[in-house]
Simulated scan of single mutants.
Amino acid sequence: MTFNPLRERGIPLDQQVRNWSELDVMPIDPDHADPYTRCRVITMNGIETEAIFFSHHMARHCPDLETKQQLARVRYIEAQQQKAVNWLLPGVASVLETTIAYEQVAVDLTAWVARMEPDSYLKQAYQFGVLEDFDHLYRYANLFEMIEHRKAETIVDRLTEVMPGRPTYLQHRDPMDNVREPYNRAAAAPLSKLHALTIMSAEQQTMNFYMNTGPMYMEPIARQLYQEIGLVEEEHVTHYESLMDPGETWWERLLLHEYNECYLYHSFMETESDRRVKAIWELHLNMELEHLRLAAELFKKHDDRDPEQVVGDRLPAPVTFEPNKEYIREILSTQIDYTTLGTGYVQEAHERFQRMQEKILGGERSPSEVVIDDNRHKSGEEYRLEIEGPHPMPSLRVHR
């Protein structure tokens, strides 16, 4: 059955404001909830946060008072949605526990997008990034064991493996080499546009989270690790945002944001295992249908085009959180030694890469390496969660 959100009617905007009791949602149970329910919550918080940021930026560039007022009305509802979604996360979960869940999102959402992406250049961008987030999960899992004396498998529930990816210290590149070529707005598949917006939003959320939570720890190694990985997440946001065509108009971008929210809420409503959370996805979908209608009207008025020219006439197959162990192992076996050069990828470490390594590391071991050594010393061995088979791990050829 096809679903075209452009032809559906949602809840009228003036009926969408919720009171405190309606916004005060009961959080999920951290010990019994499906880990992928938590992943869906984290994903939608990132999507809603990006929608709010984008609306603010658009308003700052918009001279028309009436349009700015409409953006403000919709944005307030988006802010309520963001609060309801993010407040589903349990307060009893530590920052580090939530961090591991963030990285599980980064691994399994990016891997799924890479598998489904029809454009080979964009697919390569997601495959490149997922190996780095995979390594972040491994580093934080060792910090989690060392500081909180708990295993990351209590969070990821063996759905996602925890083992080395592309080593984090090798992820510090010259900033210019983090910029990719954008898709062509006139030729790219609608799904490609939604993928780019989704992963950029998720990575942006992670970058912001680490920037704000990193200093909350007293342990020096924790503060250092958040600082290092937080810098890599900035690289990732640059990497993914550059995939989007800068020629898209503000109205086109607004349309894509609202359509993507409909797509993801519909996807998660279709795949959610928790009935109570599923009801929230359904409610928010019905709100977003009205937001999309309003955005489509602005798009038709200012760009004088049919919205279906940009987003298509039906939703793609639902975004699905599911294990990607075999897929990630396949990429690990062939791409772990990649780095970037200009807008492309190479396997040999080049001069700019080496220069950046020397600047950022200064001959010292990075926090992402120290945390593994410290956990081996404290716990007797490093923490890994390998579900099956040996782990292939060739090394990047760096001459030091």
Rank of each mutant, 00 (worst) to 15 (best):
C262N: 03
A279W: 03
I77S: 05
E369V: 14
E78I: 01
H239D: 02
G230N: 03
N212V: 07
T340P: 01
E270G: 04
I280A: 04
K68R: 15
P392L: 06
A93C: 15
E364Q: 14
R185Q: 13
H32N: 15
R115I: 04
E22N: 02
F321L: 09
A33T: 15
G380F: 13
V107E: 01
P5C: 04
Q205M: 10
V346H: 02
G129H: 06
E248P: 01
Y183A: 03
S120Y: 08
R115F: 00
A279T: 08
Q354H: 11
R275Q: 15
R293E: 11
W281P: 07
N212I: 06
N178H: 11
Y76S: 14
A296R: 09
M244I: 09
V319W: 02
P367E: 07
A295P: 09
L341G: 05
E261H: 07
H266A: 13
R384N: 05
P30I: 12
R275D: 15
D274E: 13
P63K: 09
K151P: 04
V95D: 05
D306G: 06
R365H: 12
D373H: 08
M1V: 06
I147F: 01
T168F: 00
V237I: 02
I11H: 03
H195V: 00
I155A: 01
L294S: 02
A296L: 12
R73W: 06
Q171Y: 00
T154D: 13
A152G: 09
L264H: 05
I360W: 07
M356Y: 14
G91H: 05
V277G: 04
Q81A: 03
E235N: 02
N86W: 10
P182K: 01
N45G: 14
S55I: 03
E272Q: 10
S395D: 12
D24M: 08
F54D: 01
K68Y: 10
P182E: 03
L298I: 09
P182G: 06
Q347I: 09
E326R: 05
V156Q: 04
V25G: 05
T2L: 12
S333A: 15
Y217H: 11
I47Q: 10
A33S: 15
A93M: 15
S192F: 09
H391P: 05
G46M: 01
N260R: 05
M44L: 10
Y138W: 11
A101S: 14
D245R: 01
Y76G: 11
T154M: 09
T67N: 08
Y226E: 03
S366A: 15
Y327V: 08
R314E: 15
T339V: 12
A33N: 14
M58Q: 11
L71K: 00
T168V: 07
P12S: 03
A93D: 15
M211G: 07
L294C: 05
M207G: 03
G46N: 02
I77R: 14
I100T: 04
V398Q: 09
D374G: 04
D274M: 05
S333V: 10
R376D: 08
N178L: 11
M146T: 07
R253S: 01
E219P: 04
M216C: 00
L285W: 13
T67V: 15
E364M: 11
Q357H: 10
T67L: 12
H399K: 12
D373N: 08
Y36C: 14
P12A: 04
H302N: 14
I47G: 00
N212A: 12
E282P: 02
L332V: 10
A141G: 03
